[in-house]
């Protein structure tokens, strides 16, 4: 057993509760990263007078942007839904995530 592996004893009394909390924590992190990004984005766009809020609300992604969103969505789902199953990690497994946006 490696020293980074999770201890057998659950923190919240039951292993499945720990797993659910891991999913919840991942979601909370993702939610924050997204809110941070959107806030920065809106700020930058507003500074450059590129768009207004109405344009954002009306826009429908197509083509490469739609594909990018699909790829990011899949990575998000793997990160969140996969959280209870990723019982350990290595340098190699982490380095592969460098290209996620």
């Amino acid at each position: 057993m490696r020293t980074v592996d999770r201890p057998e004893r659950p923190y919240l009394g039951q292993k499945e509760l720990d797993d659910l909390m891991r999913m919840n924590s991942e979601l909370l992190a993702e939610l924050w990263i997204l809110r941070d990004r959107v806030t920065v984005l809106e700020h930058m766009l507003q500074e450059k007078s590129v768009i207004d809020r109405k344009q954002l609300n009306e826009y429908v992604p197509q083509g490469d942007l739609a594909k990018e969103l699909e790829r990011e969505r899949a990575a998000l789902i793997e990160r969140v839904a996969g959280a209870p199953h990723a019982t350990s990690y290595t340098f190699e497994s982490l380095a592969r995530q460098a290209d996620v946006g």
Partner: peptide, 20 residues
């Protein structure tokens, strides 16, 4: 119990997030 859960989770995530 939640405090300990978060301490462990953050402890792991430091590297899980910082290395990529």
């Amino acid at each position: 119990r939640f405090n300990r859960f978060y301490q462990r989770w953050v402890g792991e995530q430091n590297y899980i997030r910082a290395i990529p």
